[in-house]
Amino acid sequence: MEKINNILEICNLSIAYGPIKAVKEVNLEINHGEFVALIGANGAGKSSLLKSILGINKAEKGSIFFLGQDITRKPTDKIVSSGLSLIPEGHVIFSSMSVLENLQLGAYQNLADFEENLKRIFDYFPVLKDRSSQIAGTLSGGEQQMLSMGRALMSKPKLILVDEPSLGLAPKIVTDIFNILTELNKEGYAILLAEQNAKKALEGSHRCYVMKTGEIAMSGFSTDLIDDPKIRQAYLGGN
């Protein structure tokens, strides 16, 4: 049997909302243990792409393979239980439930090592431990983002999709969150990060795809792209 090197492979994926094509024939690949960034302006189709990987947006054409399995038309709950997790943009949490209950729901697809996972999450985000009985809606924006991340990690995913974690947060918290992502990657999690903050994304990632109006405009190693004049011009604010 052929050994599968990539954890995620997207082939010719197109997504349409009615007549509007959000994503056009995208090819993308992520290897085990890789930290891949997906940069592009607002509305380039980054979020649509991430949501379609999880089966929330249905693909019009093309296919998505996760660990060699075709997941293109699988229901979201099956995809999540196979080891994919999405941290959505804009802290999507269960705001009337307690922090602990949010985390319990995150662990629903992986109840076996609940206590161990919970301890791990509390190590990453000590603030969640202190507030575990607090109602999630009363947390600050940064704390809600951490809860959203913690919840996604509770299922012990093999690949984490992260959508604009920096959105609307203070620079200090953004740095914290990027540090945590780097740390998670070092522990072996593969990460696909969609981010408008191109500088941060390029600094943290191994490879990067640049998305423009639904298409992959460029791709390559982040260290190369960060010096590319076109990228500097378009996404990093000139020289």
């Binding site: 999880l54 995809i79 729901l105 629903y108």
Partner: peptide, 20 residues
């Protein structure tokens, strides 16, 4: 808990893998 999760935030319920 699934009932309450879907009631409160269907998108988040989807994300954590609740079979809607």
């Amino acid at each position: 808990r699934f009932f309450r999760a879907i009631a409160e935030n269907r998108f988040a319920a989807c994300l954590v893998g609740i079979p809607i």
